[in-house]
Design a protein around this nucleic acid. Structure first.
Lengths: 211, 211
DNA sequence: AAGTGATTTAATCACTTGGTTAAAATAATT
DNA sequence: AATTATTTTAACCAAGTGATTAAATCACTT
């Protein structure tokens, strides 16, 4: 039987997974050794193979969780009952918060996906639901009504994600080349996201461009 | 003495470096073994350590080259005699071309910098020249003249780079979740960069916002 | 208290890693 | 041709890699 799950101490399996997520997010798959994970979890290195059959399996499990979290976060916003403008604004805020509480997630996913694109296989279904969301329909309607510039939802999405996520991807470079500390970067980030939101909304809803 | 450098066959040192760049860009530092590089260069693995003292040294040499190329590319645009609007447009085009001819450079730099920020040490000087470029002055002037929205050059830069570079960073994800092939992605990218250029210019030079 | 199956451990395996060495092959200089 | 310097190689090393094993320990039932 499993240990008591209601205890303050999480189950061993969960403890391993948490430790592994932390290490993988920091060092990536190639940079992580099974002994790193074992040490971080405070367990014997053989235990990792007892619960998850291999480093690869453990990694995939964590990778899937992160992708699922990311995609579901997006979908939950896209399917909420809001006006298009509210939704875009909410989405930018959501992305910003997401990146703040998980600063190296994007770099992790991007890089691992670059190294091995097949890793998306198990969560690709979720990703494909995004184009079918209510958001897509709202964009098409708004274009038809002449409310916004004619542009596909895919391009809008890419713009929003690019501006929110890249800000955190380039965090190490920005901080170093501008001599920023955490606080300074944070201030810059908050300011930047305000500009981004303003820019995207201004552009999409500009009356002179929309027919 | 070195072998004949004017030969059609590059010097061994150069051949190693080329092969190493290719492998490093694809697999990253951690994912690359010295034997990978040796095989790609068609040499014995000991030869790598003969020319470059270690994997780390070889890597750093390549990493510095790439960073230098990137920063100098930016600087050359920023210091050209152009109007601000022309410059922004040219910069976006430049970034786009850069990413097209070197699709995984950004992911590489971003990721390696995340793993080990000190890697920027040798080229940080170049990066710091960007805020001192003519571009910065032009932005400040344009704001003073009420030509553009009051915004720092740093934010403008981040916007441009984010939108161009992230497009290619997310290439694997975009292609997979939308079932695109190379041609389809290319078409999407061209279209997207047109939108981005339009959006950024529209926003910055919007008359109703600029005082 | 003994038995049962799930959990955890130390020890170890086969293999890969980055790096070294000493000697052989090649080129340059005398 | 003899000598010296440079380039290349095969063989090897110590450390680290992911994974397995068999024995020990634990929680629980009887």
């Amino acid at each position: 039987m499993k240990k008591d799950m209601t205890d303050t101490v999480a189950s061993t399996e969960e403890r391993i997974k948490e430790a592994a997520r932390k290490v993988f997010l920091e060092k990536g798959f190639d940079g992580t050794t099974t002994r790193d994970i074992a040490q971080a979890a405070g367990i014997n290195s053989a235990l990792m193979n007892y619960y998850f059959r291999s480093k690869e399996k453990l990694f995939q499990s964590i990778f899937n969780d992160l992708c699922t979290m990311m995609f579901e976060g997006m979908l939950s916003i896209f399917n909420q009952p809001m006006t298009l403008k509210e939704k875009i604004s909410a989405f930018i805020d959501h992305e910003f918060q997401m990146m703040r509480s998980n600063p190296n997630m994007v770099n992790f996913i991007t890089n691992e996906l670059h190294r091995n694109p097949e890793r998306l296989f198990e969560t690709i279904g979720l990703a494909k639901k995004i184009p079918e969301s209510v958001f897509q329909k709202q964009v098409d309607e708004a274009i038809a009504e002449g409310l916004i510039v004619p542009i596909s939802a895919h391009h809008i999405l890419t713009m929003i994600i690019a501006n929110s996520q890249f800000l955190f991807l380039s965090k190490p470079l920005t901080m170093q080349s501008n001599g920023m500390d955490e606080a300074a970067f944070n201030e810059f980030a908050v300011q930047h996201m305000a500009y981004v939101k303003d820019m995207i909304c201004t552009y999409l809803f500009s009356p002179q461009k929309a027919t």
